[in-house]
Amino acid sequence: MTAVPIAPAPASSLLEVRDLRTFFELESGVVRAVDGVSFALDRGRVLGLVGESGCGKTMTALSLMRLVPRPGRIVGGQVWLEGRDLLALPEREMRAVRGEGMAMIFQEPMTSLNPVFTVGSQIAEAIRLHRRVSRRAAWARAVELLDEVGMPDPVRRAREYPHRLSGGMCQRVMIAIAISCEPHVLIADEPTTALDVTIQAEILDLLRTLRERHGMALLLITHDLGVVAEQADEVAIMYAGRIVEHASVLEIFERPLHPYTQALLRSMPGVGSERRDRLETIPGQVPDLLRLPSGCHFRDRCPKAISRCAEEDPALEEKAARHTAACIRV
């Protein structure tokens, strides 16, 4: 059994993901990269999707955009965006959704931009893909967008090539492209991981400003619990392709229920907190999706595991008000 969907989201939900499954069929076996993920995201809200490398958070995002790389395949589930199931749309309509309905920015802004075109032309191209406007109008809009994302001297910067810009500036360009068609949902996949901490702060502030101005919903994918604590309204914790806990940001940090969430929070050194000589660790390694233990995938690293954890696949269930966790020990 895979995780059951959370109760049907209220009609106001902008984005609703139900039992999403994306598998990679390899010679060595089937990797269930996204294995029954469900969540809802409302207008103007920020959902932090948190997990360690290989837990499926990026694949979840790429599945929403229907950009899963081969040999990966979305094998089931629904992605409802403003009343339409994106997984049922023909590719042509999906292309319009990308950009206008939902846009995505990535971890490596330097490698996401084309090195042989100016940044202005890349923004203008994105606009002309979706809107019937003249080249000149698209260029003018590109400069406007660069200004909006806080690029100093946008008229001159529009004519520059990506290699002339710092990582932080490239990320601003990526954000300009992403918001160029005013999407309702922005997916940011580790948007600041490759950036220095002061630049990270600027980009996070920019994302917040844009979100408030345009009422965008944000799916913020990150491994950094500090970033989540500052930015997110709700948090979903992923482990081995599944959401294992989902609650408001306060609940997650103050009353984490799942042993994995608890361990993750305790393994993190914190600024200003009392110095502990030893951090708590999670024994073992980040799991190999081809060799997952039976039952609960976390059980071989879990301090609370009992024999029943090997037999039962824990469902994501409501354990407290608006707080779900997938653990039979909670």
């Binding site: 702060a201 600027e202 930015q231 940001v249 940090f253 993190m268």
Partner: peptide, 25 residues
């Protein structure tokens, strides 16, 4: 001080006003 204020604090009750630097290195 700017560096320290830029570090996200893993405590949602302590969301703070950050000091933001102008410009790049």
């Amino acid at each position: 001080r700017t560096l320290l204020s830029a570090v996200p604090v893993p405590d949602p009750r302590r969301r703070k006003q950050r000091m933001v630097l102008g410009g790049d290195l």
